[in-house]
């Protein structure tokens, strides 16, 4: 019910937000505002004055050639890198002073380009760690095993099993995550990220290393996550997936924003075609 209204809303706003969207207008309903973000590494400009905003409930594709700065952008949104200038607003609040774990608590989760599951822990435990910011018990809780701690633990496990079922991984729950095939590990990372109940989920090349069947399953999973009212950004090289699933696409090239708009608009954009084909 909520999802539907969000969907309808986001489709509306899509029309109004095209390539020439003015930078300085903050609309309080945007879940993410990126303003004039710049980041240098040594002498190399990894991000050059990037601005865009994401409306709640949509899937936003982030595409661009290798080295365009997509992962750097993710690292800045999640607070791993600090931008040299510019700012990121999450739900209208600046994130500059927040630590990574505080951002996760606020509702930003991510997956990694190269799978980074906790290899020696079981899949269930991986998802439970993902729930870290939504559970409370600490040292004394662990030592005393008060009733509320045990209750919390039981509830967390139930929720984790639900998430594994949601991602189709129930059968692997008690296997060490490192032993899973790559395709399953990719799904498991999404399950772990969802465990923190994110409002914004960043997926870094979720389809990399997947075969066509798995990619299709991934597409469906992303669709179902979207139905849970989770806003997503995804970096993807698989164009049919990225274009098929995104409500909006942002194109980066060499640290600059090249274009922004609906998949169709972007596909017909001259600059984008040049970036992808012209220099090939």
């Amino acid at each position: 019910m909520v999802t539907d209204s969000v969907k309808a809303f986001s489709k509306q706003s899509l029309g109004s937000c095209d390539i020439e969207c003015p930078k300085d207008i903050t609309r309080s309903h945007d879940i993410l505002n990126v303003r004039n973000l710049t980041k240098m590494f040594g002498g190399v400009t990894a991000q050059d004055d990037i601005s865009f905003s994401i409306e709640p409930g949509i899937v936003c594709g982030l595409i661009g050639p290798n080295g365009a700065g997509k992962t750097t952008l993710f690292n800045m949104i999640t607070g791993i890198y600090r931008p040299d200038s510019g700012q990121v607003l999450f739900n209208g609040r600046p994130t500059r002073k927040m630590a990574v774990h505080q951002l996760v608590r606020a509702g930003i989760a991510r997956t990694f380009q190269h799978v980074e599951l906790f290899g020696s822990m079981t899949l269930l435990e991986n998802v439970l760690v993902g729930m870290h910011v939504r559970t409370k018990s600490g040292f004394w809780g662990a030592v005393t095993r008060m009733p509320w701690v045990m209750r919390e633990e039981r509830r967390a496990r139930e929720k984790a099993m639900d998430l594994l079922e949601f991602t189709g991984l129930t059968q692997y729950a008690h296997r060490p995550a490192g032993d899973l095939p790559v395709g399953r590990q990719k799904m498991a990372e999404i399950a772990r990220a969802l465990a923190s109940e994110p409002k914004l989920l960043l997926l870094d090349e979720p389809a990399a290393g997947l075969n066509p069947v798995e990619t299709e399953a991934l597409g469906k999973l992303i669709q179902r996550v979207k139905e849970r009212a989770v806003t997503m950004m995804l970096v993807e090289h698989d164009m049919s997936l990225a274009m098929g699933i995104s409500d909006k696409v942002i194109v980066l090239d060499r640290g600059k924003k090249l274009a922004e708009g609906s998949p169709r608009e972007v596909q017909n954009n001259q600059a984008v075609m040049e970036a992808y084909l012209g220099r090939g």
Binding site: H101, F112, S196
Partner: peptide, 17 residues
């Protein structure tokens, strides 16, 4: 669990909160 996750991968551990 959080402790063991640091051992397996500190960056990922940080990223999940």
């Amino acid at each position: 669990r959080a402790l063991r996750s640091i051992h397996d991968g500190e960056n990922a551990s940080l990223a999940v909160g």
